[in-house]
Amino acid sequence: MNLAFDLLLIAALLWSAGRALTTPDLFRAVVLFIVFGLLMALAWARLDAPDIALAEAAIGAGLTGALLLDALGHLRGPVRRKSGLIAPSTVMSSEGAGPPAFPTYFLNGLAIVLAVALGLALAGALLLLPEPAISLPREVAAAMDASGVAHPVTAVLLNFRGYDTLLEVAVLWLALLGVLAVAGGRAPGRAPVTPRSARASLKVPRLLARVLAPLALLVAGYLLWAGAHQPGGAFQAGAVLAAAAVLLNLAGLLPGGATPRWVLRAGLGFGLLVFLAVAAAVMGQGVLLQYPPAWAGALIMLIETGLTLSIGLTLAGLFLALSGASRQ
């Protein structure tokens, strides 16, 4: 029964990924990719990895999907031709290039052959692999008491391999920098002015958005707190915060824009700065990121709180900077 379910899920994963890469319509490709992300979340649940399942659903499928769908309108829109007419083939797919020339055929064939060979070699290698010499789960279990938290994944993420996480937060912040640098070359985006008639029709959804946003805050707080002893943590909580910010933006209650003011910039840098400050402060009596055992739990919670705020702002910022920039 389990095997049948696994095989079905894997078939669906391969089908959705393959179709997302081959279907001619870009919209359909993006939707199939979101389906693929949700199926991945299921796969993670099957692999006893609920933390990844949560993150995949919220970030991998949810936020990536939102970013892709939002970009679609700008990337799929017909390319204006010199004559000013819309080329018919570009309306539907926009990929409409002519039939490829001979060398392209040859190179494409070569790439397919190489990819198939790679897949087969990988499969063979995986099946032939003996058991590993080292068992890290045992090491993790032995060190859990000293980690300051009760959930193994959080212990690895913020204590045993906390240094990876420090750099990863820098990567996320860096992506926002890059997006701002690329999108922000122009005047900052303005909040759209809503005419009176439209404002009236927005009344109810705005009310609901005002109710939902604090609820999202509550959920984020719960996820953050829960992360210490069960699946959850700063990244999942930050994703929920980001979703609330996007909702408020859609309701016109939060302006999008390409040039953040300094309070916002401080918020975006806050998580990284807290992490860096803790890393530097504990070096006074040990090495980088070596928490004193009595303080480990509290310090991890401090770092995670800072991270939740910054990750929420950054993920929302990625969305708002991208969607705000093109809407002059």
């Binding site: 990844i52 993420l157 391999r161 990863e168």
Partner: peptide, 9 residues
């Protein structure tokens, strides 16, 4: 938990 944390990253 180790590769799981890596994948989250």
């Amino acid at each position: 938990p180790v590769p799981q944390a890596m994948v989250l990253t």
